[in-house]
Design a binder for these strands. Structure first.
Lengths: 134, 134
DNA sequence: CTTGACTCCGTACCATGGTACGGAACTTAT
DNA sequence: ATAAGTTCCGTACCATGGTACGGAGTCAAG
């Protein structure tokens, strides 16, 4: 009989595949303390749904522009009881994110301007630097 | 009499200071062909206003999320005569930028939700993962 | 009970975007 | 003319976020 595995059902390979990352990436995150390293059962580590949730969270937070270090903090706060620390960190990140979005919007306007000014029917180089206000 | 310097007036240190970067960064950009390496006059390179324009462009394009390699392409196109190539690249970058802005806006909503859900008067951990739809 | 796939683990390597170091040559101020 | 400050140049080092490698152990099917 195979030992009961409870909620621990995924091997590292399955977990990585489910999370859309490579096995090496999972191991890398473990080294960085972003994912827990579970106990070994029969020599192989088994991962539960919590690990998958965290893995997916890491991916989303990364696309949101967080560094792995910031994500580590967020994950620690998610587990912890310190509501005000969590809220403060989230608010800080929110401010940073909004500033970043503002920058990107300005850059978007510059690029839009460039695309419209660099029309087919004109000659000479396109005013790339000028589009950025230079 | 000091030899006339025409528009070549800045030394690398002045250029770097004017562009808000370090001397080493200017040299790094030269190695990466983002900035031209001017001829030496009396053993020291002199930089004109064009170098400063490029340096400032690099900084702005970086905050717009371009990699140095992409910036190198943009600078090459700015100098070149190929309008359609320049416009196509700009359009491609514009699409990427808008996709990125969309991602960041979604992340912002998640963070906003988190800040509002993680209120002072409740107890227990803040629902960080849950705020991101997990 | 062997074969092939997967896991474990440490270590090395990679790209990106810089930053630092150190000696020699050159410039600038006194 | 000498000392302090820059520049020049190669090379080494750094952080971030992974990716690859090699050998050993384990697991599952035939």
């Amino acid at each position: 009989m195979v030992r009961s595995q409870g909620p621990q059902e995924l091997t590292i390979g399955k977990l990585a595949a489910a999370g859309g990352v490579g096995v090496e990436t999972v191991r890398f995150y473990q080294r960085k303390a972003l994912l827990a390293t579970p106990k070994r059962l029969d020599g192989v580590r088994r991962y539960g749904p919590e690990a998958l949730r965290r893995l997916r969270f890491i991916k989303r937070a990364q696309t949101a522009g967080f560094t792995l270090e910031e994500i580590r903090e967020l994950l620690a706060l998610d587990a912890g009881e310190n509501r005000s620390a969590a809220r403060d960190l989230a608010r800080k990140r929110l401010d940073q994110l909004e500033a970043r979005i503002g920058e990107l919007n300005r850059a978007r306007e510059a690029l839009r301007k460039l695309v419209s000014e660099c029309a087919e029917d004109k000659t000479g180089p396109c005013p790339i630097l000028a589009s950025f206000g230079l």
